[in-house]
Simulated assay, not measured.
Amino acid sequence: MSGAPGQFTGGFNAELLRRNRFCMGVKRGREYVCSGEAGEDAVNKAVDFLVEAINRIQHWRVWETWWIEETMDEWLEARDRLEVQLRGGKYSEDIVNAITGGLVDKFINYNERFLNYWRDVGNETRRLIDNLMNGRAEVIIRGEGASGISVHSEHITLETDRTSTSIPVHLVLKGLEGVDVEVPDFMMMMNKEEYTKFVKTLRSLRIGFAETDESVEKGRPVMGTNQTWQVIFWSLLYPGEIRVHINTVNVNVNNMTVTWYLRSSNHKSLKGKIKDADVDKFSDEEV
Rank of each mutant, 00 (worst) to 15 (best):
K106M: 07
G29T: 04
S166Y: 10
V251C: 10
H152Y: 06
L158F: 09
K192C: 09
A42S: 15
H267T: 05
R243H: 15
M133V: 10
R87D: 02
E144D: 14
D41C: 08
K106E: 12
Y32I: 03
N97S: 15
Y238F: 14
K90D: 08
I129H: 13
G122W: 06
G3R: 03
T71G: 06
L132W: 13
F49E: 07
E40V: 11
N247L: 11
K218F: 11
V183R: 02
K106V: 02
N111P: 00
A98T: 00
H155K: 13
W118S: 02
E241F: 04
D41W: 11
T257C: 05
E112K: 07
E70A: 06
V51K: 12
K218I: 01
L115K: 06
K275F: 09
L262H: 07
K275I: 09
G143M: 12
A98S: 11
I232N: 01
E193R: 15
F107D: 02
T212D: 05
F186K: 01
P221M: 02
Y110I: 01
K271A: 10
S35E: 15
E69P: 01
A46S: 06
L171R: 08
I54G: 14
G29F: 00
T71E: 05
N250S: 13
L236P: 04
S283T: 15
V251N: 12
R162Y: 11
R119K: 14
V183F: 00
D213A: 12
V183S: 03
Y32G: 08
F282S: 04
T165H: 13
D284Q: 08
R113T: 03
G208F: 04
Q227L: 12
E64P: 02
P168A: 06
G36S: 09
R263D: 08
V179M: 04
G25R: 06
V104T: 07
R28P: 06
I207R: 05
K218R: 13
N97L: 08
S164C: 03
E37Y: 09
N250L: 15
T157V: 12
L237M: 13
V287T: 09
D213I: 08
R136S: 14
E211F: 05
D185A: 06
K174R: 15
G3E: 06
M1A: 13
R126I: 00
D213T: 10
G143Q: 10
T225I: 03
G178L: 03
N134T: 15
R21I: 08
M187C: 12
D284E: 11
R119L: 10
E214T: 05
P239V: 01
W60R: 03
H59D: 05
V231N: 02
T125R: 09
S166P: 00
I141S: 07
G39N: 14
E194K: 08
W229N: 07
R126T: 08
L202A: 02
V47E: 13
T157C: 10
V253I: 15
A46C: 06
D161A: 13
V222G: 04
